[in-house]
Write a protein that binds this DNA or RNA. Structure first.
Lengths: 238, 238
DNA sequence: TTGACATGTTACTGACCGGTTAGTTAACCT
DNA sequence: AGGTTAACTAACCGGTCAGTAACATGTCAA
């Protein structure tokens, strides 16, 4: 097997330093800045994202966090619990990102969706996003449905679909559920494709794809709504 | 860590028996039916798909293949080489599936695309596809770009995009490259979503999404071509 | 000063990992 | 009969894994 991590002896592997999951690492924690728990959580997220969950040992995490395995196990019950905490933290930051975009276009569901995809397309092309979505990636590595992180993964994806469906409904789409699910597939698709494609630019067409779906005669908003959308921000929609 | 595999002592784990990746397992090999190499290749694909590459030991593969680790290492250079062989085998079977569908609608690029998505939607809902795409999954677990399987993964995805772009061109699409890439994203998306969504049916809208994209005024075929498509099979396209 | 608390240090356990060595058995070909 | 080939058994190697035990240190608050 091609060396998983650079041995338990790895003191300060900067293999992952400078790299972080696409929606950032923890910084807003209750405890004083950069307490051991914070550093461990951040190191784990970076290493998990960069190399995969199973490829990273707790020794490597502790080393990257500039602490020891003992401290790690004092703060987290197990590696599995740490994994779950990492994912929770990442979903929290993802939804912060989402909310900020949605808030910027209140009452304009179509503009909200477009902005989400425009900014996603930009973000996914950035170098630090080269391993796609950390949550979806975890789903690949965790086969046990009883794993403490499994629920986080499922809930996250269900929430994306739910919110897209709702936005599509507000937009007055003909088929809000199908359209919402189609947009969800584009999101999961762009993350997955980002890993496997050499050229990061190739996945950028996700924004155009989303707009094409929104304009779809079969799924999108009827002409009336489409004409309306360019004008004043409608309050909420039917 | 939640027990990776059920110990090296696992003799005949039927944890994966009866489960196979979405595009099947090897059966058409040169050597006599069910030689050791065949059995190993099949067992590895099943176990890798079900539990992930890193979670499966070579001991477990040998046991599942009803042979020994020694035989495995006589036939394959290393676990990494075995991984690469598994992926090659799976891409081969994927393109067999693809070609069969495309051949059934020769000269009708739009019908070819629609059929690909219709059948993909059906296949992805099947129980044995519940872990998405084995090739995309491997990309998550293999972080080393020098891994013997990395090239297989990249080439596979590039080929999908290339073929979709070509079909879109033949279809006379306004933006064949963007449309082709959008379809590619739907494919990667439906595989990824299949893992994380509890309800398999939710990803089925991929076929409708694809049709909506094909009908997109901005990306799809102009009205003329669209009217034409229902009629006689055009020979090749512009 | 005295605790309490978070953290660090060192060393360990038992299991499992990928990979190897050595020797055996059975079928087939010449 | 002898040789080749492919398969088997069983034990082993050095290393890594997740997780633990026992003890030392620093710091801050009362």
């Amino acid at each position: 097997m091609s060396t998983p991590r650079e041995g338990a002896a790895a003191p300060l592997s900067n293999a992952a330093s400078g790299t972080a999951p696409p929606f950032g690492s923890p910084s807003d924690c209750a405890c004083p800045p950069q307490c051991a728990k914070d550093r461990i959580l951040q190191a784990a997220q970076n290493l998990f994202y960069e190399h995969g969950i199973r490829a990273v040992s707790v020794d490597a995490i502790a080393a990257e966090a500039d602490t020891t395995k003992v401290t790690l196990y004092r703060v987290f019950e197990s590696k599995d619990a740490l994994i779950a905490e990492c994912l929770k933290d990442q979903t929290r930051r993802f939804w912060q990102w989402w909310e900020a975009i949605v808030d910027a276009h209140q009452g304009q569901p179509r503009a909200q969706i477009e902005a989400l995809f425009d900014l996603l397309a930009n973000r996914i092309c950035r170098k630090e996003a080269h391993r796609g979505c950390p949550i979806a990636n975890s789903a690949v590595e965790l086969d046990d449905p009883a794993h403490p992180a499994a629920h986080v993964i499922r809930e996250h994806h269900a929430e994306i679909a739910k919110r897209f469906r709702k936005l599509c409904k507000e937009m007055g789409a003909r088929e809000p559920n199908v359209l919402g699910d189609a947009l969800t597939l584009l999101v999961t698709g762009v993350f997955s494709a980002r890993i496997a494609f050499e050229n990061a630019e190739q996945v950028k067409s996700v924004a155009e794809a989303a707009k094409a779906l929104l304009d779809s005669p079969a799924l999108g908003a009827p002409e009336a709504a489409k004409a309306q959308r360019a004008k004043a921000p409608r309050p909420k929609a039917p």
